[in-house]
Amino acid sequence: MAQYLIYFNQQWVGDHEEAWFHSRVEPSTAVVRAMQDEGVLVFAGGLVEELEEAASADATSGEVVVTDGPFAETKEWLGGLTIIDVPDDETARAWAGRVAEGCGWPQEVRRFKAGSLQAVALGG
């Protein structure tokens, strides 16, 4: 089994009426429930949209510096993520498609490197 990250940038969501967002709750949570039922879900969650609540930590100077806000000026930022543990790329892509359909906006899927710290920390 390998672990995969399914994620979206907040800007991919698009502008919609509040009612549209409410209409996405059931289909998107249904996908998460299906992942739980099939035993592939490691974690899923959306992030707070307000960038002023973000903080960055940088130790490249040899000293840890923590500052308010995102690390770099950017036009896109992470909106939410799901981590799954599935046997192959095809299965991961199928789940990403289901998440995209449930949410109503695009998703990207990427495999964690084998033996990477992230995969080890998540039990992979």
Rank of each mutant, 00 (worst) to 15 (best):
G45Q: 00
V31A: 06
V65Y: 01
A57C: 10
G46D: 12
E50Y: 02
L47A: 08
T29G: 05
T67A: 10
A59K: 06
H22P: 00
T67F: 04
A34T: 08
F21K: 05
L41H: 00
E18L: 11
E18H: 13
V66P: 05
V31H: 07
A30R: 11
M35C: 13
V32N: 15
E17V: 14
S56D: 09
E17P: 11
G62H: 09
A34F: 02
V42P: 00
E53C: 03
V48L: 10
S23F: 06
R24A: 08
H22G: 08
A54M: 15
A34S: 15
A44E: 10
E17M: 08
A34W: 01
V31Q: 05
A34N: 08
S56N: 11
E52C: 01
T60C: 05
S56Y: 03
A57Q: 09
L41R: 00
L51Q: 15
E50I: 03
A54R: 14
E63D: 11
E26K: 14
L41M: 05
A19V: 04
A54Y: 15
L41E: 01
T60P: 02
V66A: 08
V48K: 14
E17F: 03
V65P: 01
S61L: 08
T29F: 09
F21R: 07
P27D: 03
W20E: 08
E18R: 11
A34Q: 13
L41C: 02
D37R: 10
A55L: 07
A57P: 04
S61P: 03
E53P: 00
G46F: 01
L51E: 15
V42S: 01
L51W: 03
V32E: 07
S56A: 13
E49D: 13
L47H: 15
T67E: 11
Q36R: 10
A54F: 14
H22S: 09
D58G: 05
V32G: 02
V32Q: 08
F21D: 06
Q36E: 13
V66E: 06
Q36W: 00
S23C: 07
E52R: 10
G45K: 00
F43A: 14
T29N: 15
L51G: 08
T60F: 05
A19H: 05
A55D: 03
V32F: 00
L41I: 01
F21T: 06
G45M: 00
P27W: 04
D37V: 01
A30M: 04
R24S: 07
A44P: 07
A59V: 11
V48R: 13
V64H: 04
T67L: 07
T29I: 15
E49T: 14
S28Y: 05
P27E: 04
A54Q: 13
E53A: 11
V65M: 07
E52A: 10
T67N: 07
V64S: 08
E63I: 10
V48Y: 03
W20R: 06
R24P: 03
G39Y: 02
S28L: 09
T60E: 13
Q36G: 03
A55Y: 11
E49R: 13
S23G: 12
G46E: 13
P27N: 05
E26A: 12
V40D: 01
E49K: 11
F43P: 00
G62E: 09
D37L: 02
D37K: 12
A54I: 01
V32R: 06
A54E: 12
V48D: 12
S28Q: 15
